[in-house]
């Protein structure tokens, strides 16, 4: 099953909760952990958010895991870099390889950074996984976040899905024709995949502009706020 963030955002125990609360919870806790800057607090925040996401919102642990793997890899790489290549102080581990050493300061910095990033990320994850994007944007709008920012996020959000879909389709097409059979053809296929993706994205943006214009778009996406909330049975 493909990881479908949007589906999860619409179908969890907290998706009907007032989005403002969620936004406030996420931002406050994030700010708190940033300001306090304490390893223990970071870990507590991370665990708390994990509990909120998996136990309260009842989002499956697997989905959550999938959601955090990519940022995990990125921050892990960054922090390993911090640990091995920066910092001064007492040497606590020597690799005997090009003089690369781990010092107490660098180790500290690495671990701290990692935990902070993760504490913040889990707050964002809580927001992203429990709240549909449309609602988040509505909130931001009423918080007087500049329009241009919201419109760009809206269009980008949509484009990312089309982009991923496109990527998926092209990859399948290439694989069907044995495009990744052998190293050389794999490189070749990958190269053409990316060029094609780039060209297609440009083309897409042009077409989107046409479609928006056709519906009398005047440079500003209007806000749809139905007054009566009808509930479908």
């Amino acid at each position: 099953m493909k990881f479908d963030m949007d589906f999860i955002a619409h179908n969890n125990n907290l998706s009907l909760m007032n989005p403002y609360y969620k936004l406030i919870i996420a931002i406050l806790i994030m700010l708190f952990s940033l300001i306090v800057n304490n390893l223990i607090i970071d870990i507590i925040v991370f665990i708390l958010m994990g509990i909120l996401i998996t136990l309260v919102a009842k989002i499956s642990f697997k989905s959550y895991l999938k959601f955090i793997t990519i940022p995990f890899i990125f921050s892990a790489i960054t922090c390993l870099y911090l640990i091995f290549f920066t910092g001064t102080g007492e040497i606590i581990f020597n690799t005997h390889f090009f003089g690369i050493v781990v010092t107490d300061k660098s180790l500290n910095l690495g671990i701290n950074t990692f935990c902070r990033v993760f504490a913040c990320f889990s707050c964002l994850g809580f927001l992203a996984l429990t709240t549909p994007i449309a609602e988040i944007l509505h909130c931001l709008r009423s918080c007087k976040v500049p329009k241009i920012f919201i419109e760009i996020s809206l269009l980008m959000y949509n484009t990312i899905f089309i982009f991923l879909d496109q990527l998926d389709r092209m990859r399948n097409a290439q694989e069907t024709r044995l495009g990744y059979f052998g190293t050389k053809s794999a490189y070749h296929s990958l190269a053409s995949l990316f060029t094609n993706l780039f060209v297609k994205s440009l083309d897409k943006s042009e077409k989107l502009q046409c479609a928006l214009d056709s519906r009398c778009y005047d440079g500003e996406i209007p806000i749809y706020k139905p007054s009566k909330v009808k509930k479908d049975a």
Binding site: P132, I133, A134, L137, L154, L155, Y157, N158, I162, D165, K204, K207, L208, C210, A211, L212, S214, R215, C216, Y217, D218, I221, P222, I223, Y224, K225, P226, S227, K228
Partner: peptide, 25 residues
Amino acid sequence: DDQIFAPTVEEDVAFGPLNLKLSQD
């Protein structure tokens, strides 16, 4: 896919009418 851009179905359908400056109702 060239035409639909909003995050929800209803917002996408509402896009045109709102551009015509119709009221929310």
